[in-house]
Design a protein around this nucleic acid. Structure first.
Lengths: 121, 121
DNA sequence: TTTGTAATCAACCAATTAGTTGATCAACGA
DNA sequence: TCGTTGATCAACTAATTGGTTGATTACAAA
């Protein structure tokens, strides 16, 4: 199970695509917390927050431990790191290079093969 | 308009939470492309890909230029950078520190105030 | 055992989303 | 002007999501 699986990235980015879940992440970066503690700042029910945490857990962005009837939620920084790793693949691409070239690209794409950017992998 | 607005992060992470859109990003990192070119590898209609690109454009992850009847799509690496910036806020958090501490945290949370991690902002 | 608390499960609703098909717009080439 | 190509718009369907309320499980304290 690589940490940059397609489905894994799916669930992780999806999990972060919600302001409530991002605030939960921010809160957990200052230490673990229970569902009740996490739910407090929000104007939604505890059940709704519990669902959000399930989403984060499925995305492996957080883990839960067991302690009596409490189930403290912990941040999993390793998974966040996997996301930056994915993004960095593409944001490090040379920027302006193609911007002025694209007018030529589609014109020559049929005629001249090899001028188009080819897969550098 | 800061690049790390709440709504802005919303749309950006949401945009990346789809394998088709991530593949489009990957493709665009090798240079701009038209909708038809981007749609080719996928088993969905061109209209569907056009919608995906609209999502990426709203998230400001890509931009479009105008060239005759073609509308080449370009990657916007600056926006990707904003995402890594957000993530890095939280993934750089000290890891193991709280993991062993949380058993104490909830026990002392009611009695001793101030021992709990408080907002460092 | 009974009571109280932390959290989840289950069922349901409203809103959004990804995809489709069909029609339309815009620009080029003959 | 007419036909072709690139791309979007519009309307619709099926599936998913975020939220609710009410019931239930698990544990601890009395």
């Amino acid at each position: 199970m690589k940490s940059t699986d397609d489905a894994s990235l799916d669930s992780a980015f999806m999990a972060l695509a919600d302001p409530v879940r991002r605030l939960i992440i921010a809160r957990l970066s200052r230490g673990p917390a229970t569902v009740n503690e996490l739910a407090e700042p929000f104007a939604i029910t505890k059940q709704a927050v519990s669902k959000h945490i399930q989403v984060l857990e499925q995305a492996q962005l957080v883990t839960r431990t067991r302690d009596a009837q409490r189930r403290p939620v912990h941040l999993n920084p390793a998974r966040l790191e996997a996301l930056t790793a994915w993004i960095d693949q593409y944001r490090l691409v040379r920027e302006g290079q193609f911007r002025s070239l694209d007018a030529v690209l589609h014109q020559s794409s049929a005629a001249a093969s090899g001028t188009q950017a080819k897969d550098p992998s």
